[in-house]
Simulated scan of single mutants.
Amino acid sequence: MKAKIKFKKATSPFYAELREEVKLLLTEKVIRKANRLLIIKFISYTVIFLLLYGNLFNPYMKGKTWAVILNYTLLGLTGILLAFNCSHDCVHNTFSKYKKMNQFIYYITFNLQGVNARLWRKRHITSHHVFPNVDGCDADIDDNIFIRLSAHHPIRNIHQYQHFYATLLYCFYTLHWIFIKDFIYLRKKELGNLRNQNHSWKSVVEVVVLKLAYFTYMLVLPAIFTGIPGTTIMISFLIMHLTISLFFVLTLIISHLSLETDFPIADENGCLPYDYYEHQLAVSLDYHPTNPLANWIFGGFNSHAAHHLFPGLPHTLYTIITPAIKKAAVRNNFPYHEKSIAEAVISHYQYLWKLSK
């Protein structure tokens, strides 16, 4: 019988000290400001998203292919930013003190992107966040036929070229998620560290109905109620997905899959080499973690160490607590990885090249 995966017992004062330092930093005034910023971001991205969608029905758009393509692309990017900056916090119940409000917002905003909110939450919370970068436990790095994401995965002949063709595959990430990935997860009995997964027929119907609703509001309604040709709508929709796929992948994948991040292996007793908190630092890479503009755009995904150490805090606090994390890591001789976003993307492709050998 396979040993249950577990973390090494914590012996360092790292987290105990850090938690006290963070408490001192997060005064009532700081927390109120961070919560206000969350609401401002939610309103801003929601209003922009609705205005861009409404603009598709603007008579001015008729006959202007370039304007339709641009509008769709901006609409898609705004939807991703809404998910980054609001939905993700709602999934962790850090947007509002009211759990039902968090559930409502993340459910609506995620499904507006064509991906199933419920399936993503289960994978994210109960798999990725528990054992990030651990093979067989983190659903985000499951064995992939086309891309080898871990040195512990089997190597196939096609992988020797993966650093060349990865960008092309990344361009279709969201379309693959919408059309294929969600349905694969509906059929999978084992998902990362999750075993005996079962989905009721109601869950399956929910997934199908929500996807039909997505295609209805993104494709059918504009085709019926505007003078925009159907081919223009389809081309615009495709370009939108190519753009947001690259943006989505290359701002998220670099947080865990790079030359700097570790992929810990459990020993014969199922024990990982790090305690829980050192593990979160070892497998994460930050980019511009204290930059307010980066925080506004990426919703804290650029401050991944802070997010994995303090998932119960809203991302608008990460710029404040990251300096304390850095200092605590140095004091305790714990790993901490930080690069610019350009360096992080380069590191990811170097990582793919390394794993192609």
Rank of each mutant, 00 (worst) to 15 (best):
K4V: 13
K4H: 10
K9P: 04
T11N: 08
A16Y: 09
L24D: 14
T27L: 05
T27I: 08
E28M: 07
L37V: 10
I39Y: 09
I43G: 00
Y45I: 06
I48L: 15
F49C: 07
P59V: 01
K62E: 15
Y72R: 02
L74M: 15
G79I: 03
L81G: 08
C90W: 07
C90M: 10
S96T: 10
F104P: 09
L112T: 06
N116Y: 02
A117F: 05
A117K: 06
L119Q: 08
W120H: 05
H124N: 05
H129R: 01
P132W: 01
N133Y: 00
G136L: 01
D138S: 01
I141P: 00
I147D: 00
L149W: 09
H153Q: 12
R156G: 02
H159P: 00
A166D: 12
Y170A: 15
C171M: 15
K188G: 02
L191Y: 04
R195C: 05
W201C: 06
K202S: 14
V204M: 09
V205G: 11
V205Y: 10
V207Y: 06
A213H: 08
M218Y: 15
L221I: 14
P222M: 08
I224D: 10
I235Q: 09
S236G: 08
I239E: 11
L242W: 10
S245P: 10
I253V: 13
S255K: 06
T261Y: 05
P273N: 00
D275E: 01
E278S: 10
H279S: 03
L285K: 06
Y287E: 01
T290F: 01
T290W: 00
T290G: 00
G312V: 04
H315V: 03
L317A: 09
L317K: 06
T322Q: 10
I325K: 07
N333M: 03
N333I: 03
P335K: 08
H337M: 00
A344E: 04
A344P: 09
I346N: 11
S347Q: 02
